[in-house]
């Protein structure tokens, strides 16, 4: 049984029909990537999974259990945690305080301290700046913080929305290294990326989204060889 399964999901923003029957499967321990042009519905898919948006039709299942009855905060405590698009950190709180917020669903103090240490281990840069206000971090550091904060809840499924957006190539590499590291530690990851080349390198499988629909779905290797993908997303003609 897949850890996460979407079946014919339709989502709306008011009258705008953003997802038109998306179905996808993520197996335990996999990295699955979702690629597509701007406005294809990638972020919408993640928001729908994490409960910030309710699907009007279709089912989302976590380990076979239908999530439609749950609120966003329940879904977090079930182990599905999203890193929102665009580095939404709590700007007026310090790095450490931001991380502690991430452990909101686990109230135990010693567990929290341990989780902070783990994040600092993954992102040594954050450790150097633990007392700095998150709003004054550089863009890349804020991305690390947003990711680290999501890890504080020890997610079973991590939903990453464009972790490489706006980062210098070196930082992109290091973010992707971290994702691989998390993957090795057993976290299941659904990765939304504009940087399709990098995404398809670390992913096991991938889905291509176009105007709210899945148009392609294959192993990452096959997608890399696929002509349409090469043309549209990898810039190879």
């Amino acid at each position: 049984m897949a850890i996460l399964e979407l079946e014919n999901v339709h989502s709306y923003y008011g009258h705008i029909h953003a997802l038109k029957g998306v179905s996808l499967i993520v197996e335990e321990g996999e990295i699955v990537t979702l690629i597509g042009a701007n406005g294809a519905g990638k972020s919408t898919t993640l928001k729908t999974i994490s409960g910030l948006l309710r699907p009007r039709e279709g089912h989302i299942r976590l380990n076979g259990e239908d999530l439609s009855a749950y609120k966003a905060h329940d879904i977090v405590s079930k182990g599905v945690v999203q890193v929102p698009e665009g580095r939404r950190v709590f700007g007026r709180l310090t790095v450490t305080e931001n991380l502690e917020m991430g452990a909101y669903t686990r109230s135990n103090a010693s567990e929290t301290a341990q989780a902070v240490e783990r994040v600092f281990h993954l992102f040594p840069r954050l450790k150097e700046r633990h007392n700095q206000l998150a709003g004054t971090l550089s863009g890349g550091e804020q991305q690390m913080l947003a990711t680290g904060r999501a890890l504080m809840a020890y997610p079973k499924v991590l939903l990453l929305d464009e972790p490489s957006m706006g980062l210098a190539p070196v930082l992109v590499d290091s973010i992707f290294d971290t994702i691989k590291q998390l993957h090795r530690e057993g976290t299941t990851i659904l990765l939304v990326e504009q940087n399709a080349r990098m995404a398809l390198q670390i992913a096991d499988r991938g889905y291509v989204l176009q105007t709210g629909q899945v148009v392609l779905n294959d192993s990452a290797q096959n997608l890399r060889q696929n002509e349409t993908v090469q043309k549209a997303y990898l810039g190879i003609s």
């Binding site: 910030l52 966003a72 905060h73 709590f90 909101y104 669903t105």
Partner: peptide, 12 residues
Amino acid sequence: EDEDVAQAMGIN
């Protein structure tokens, strides 16, 4: 600080 992120942190 941020209502949306708060929700994503699992806050009811």
